[in-house]
């Protein structure tokens, strides 16, 4: 089961309703998806895991729509992004806060929680939280997942021009914030 191709696993899950095959897909992709969700939710681990679980469940329900020529991780991320956006719309979770200094907030969080493993990742998540959800996802896909602009456009289902705008403006905001942090710390 472990060495089977993803297309075969999808076929087994769809035609034979083989949940073991789908569990194998979960095993292969959970780490990346859970990490991405943490980056999108300002490193809220519980929320990120809930969204990742919802993503896998939704993916299972829509597995018959998966085209074999597509990349499973991209397809999964598309579902995940939609789940994240639905959550934001429903709960009005918008962590964007230009006034808040993420570096300071991150320092506080680190000292309170004593989490020595992920200050870098929390810092990146805090930085991304400066952006509105769609722009945040674009920047995450570009800078962390290293997707091309065309791939981002396809994954997120938004026009290429919008992707470019998000990248230009998002980068500008992140760069300014980083510059601000550097000046604060120096």
């Amino acid at each position: 089961m472990e060495k089977l191709d993803e297309a075969v696993l999808v076929e087994l899950a769809v035609s034979d309703n083989d949940q073991r095959a789908f569990s194998e897909l979960v095993n292969r992709h959970q780490s990346n998806l859970r990490y991405s969700m943490r980056q999108l939710t300002n490193w809220n681990e519980d929320l990120a895991d809930d969204l990742a679980q919802d993503t896998f469940i939704q993916a299972f329900k829509e597995l018959h729509r998966f085209r074999k020529e597509a990349k499973f991780s991209s397809w999964l991320y598309r579902i995940g992004y939609n789940i994240f956006l639905q959550y934001v719309r429903k709960k009005q979770l918008d962590t964007q806060s230009i006034d808040e200094d993420p570096y300071t907030a991150n320092q506080l969080m680190s000292s309170e929680q004593g989490d020595e493993d992920s200050p870098l990742h929390q810092k990146v998540a805090k930085l991304l939280a400066m952006l509105e959800p769609e722009r945040r996802s674009v920047l995450h896909l570009l800078l962390h997942r290293q997707n091309t602009q065309q791939e981002i456009s396809e994954i997120m289902g938004i026009p290429l021009g919008t992707v470019k705008t998000h990248i230009n403006r998002g980068r500008a905001v992140l760069q300014q914030k980083l510059q601000g942090w550097r000046e604060t710390t120096s």
Binding site: Q19, Q30, R34, F56, V124, H144
Partner: peptide, 21 residues
Amino acid sequence: AREGQPALFDDNFTKVVANSL
């Protein structure tokens, strides 16, 4: 961040998903 991405692998996570299918 990319190079230091932690491996977030958890059997319990897979079980929770499998039980919710």
